[in-house]
Computed example of a mutant assay.
Amino acid sequence: MIGTSLCKWAISYFAVAIVWLLLAEVLVVAGFGFPNHDFGGPDTLVIVHMVSIGWLSTVLCGALFQFVPVLAARPLYAERWTLPALALLTLGLTILLAGFLTLGGHFNGSPRLLPVGASLLIAGFALVVANLGMTLWSARPLPGPARASSQPGWAASASRRHSAACSLWCCPEPLSARNGRTCWYRAFRSTPLPGLVDG
């Protein structure tokens, strides 16, 4: 929305996520983790958590810090929380990975590394969720785009519109002329999709 300030720390989330992804790729290329090691072993868990938390979750948080203010047409509830949340996520993941490396015998650390890292990750994600939730809560009543996607029947309504449009495209003859048969073979024809019917 015009006039909505975007989060200045979102790019930092994207940069940190790329670093985690590149580190995971370097480790996989170097032969660390699966398939050279056990699928459920600590080495593989390092790679899995680098990709799932370090890359995917961090990118998702950064994207949400960009999209939620636009969707709600107001700035983040507390933009000052975004950098501490990123620090908690990064530190928590680093400590968690050190715990997995300790389990694998690559690092001489305390067995308390895993719960400490997990606690920091939970705190970081809680800060992200609280910031986004309070942003949406303070924007009540939500503007058009946010209200439409948060209503309970929105997904079912969109599904019905999609089904009706596909039905018209796949089988343009009226339902009464079909005699109960479906025309699935027409779904793959190369003609462009005509205008969608809102219903």
Rank of each mutant, 00 (worst) to 15 (best):
H106F: 06
V129G: 07
V19S: 05
E79M: 05
A85F: 00
R74Y: 01
K8M: 03
A17H: 01
F125C: 12
T90S: 13
G40L: 04
D38N: 14
W169L: 08
A165C: 08
W9P: 04
L97N: 01
S149W: 15
T191N: 08
G40I: 07
P174F: 00
L22P: 01
A126Q: 11
A30E: 13
P145K: 05
V28I: 15
W55Y: 15
A156Q: 11
A123T: 07
G33S: 14
H49C: 06
T191P: 03
H37K: 13
A87E: 12
G99L: 03
A156N: 12
I18V: 12
L97I: 15
C7T: 01
R140G: 09
A15D: 09
R74N: 07
G109V: 04
A17L: 01
L56Y: 13
I95C: 06
G41L: 03
G109R: 02
L27K: 08
P194D: 07
A24Q: 00
V59S: 02
A165S: 15
L27R: 06
L71Q: 05
G133F: 11
T102A: 09
G153S: 14
E79F: 02
G105L: 10
I11V: 12
P111Q: 07
L45D: 01
L86V: 14
L97E: 03
V129I: 11
V70I: 13
F125L: 13
C170K: 07
V29T: 08
D38C: 04
E79I: 03
M134W: 09
V59H: 03
F39M: 06
L120K: 07
A158K: 12
L121A: 00
A158S: 10
G54N: 00
S163K: 13
S5T: 02
W20F: 14
T135D: 03
E173T: 08
C183R: 12
L83R: 15
L6Y: 01
L27I: 04
P143H: 02
L88G: 06
V128D: 01
W81N: 02
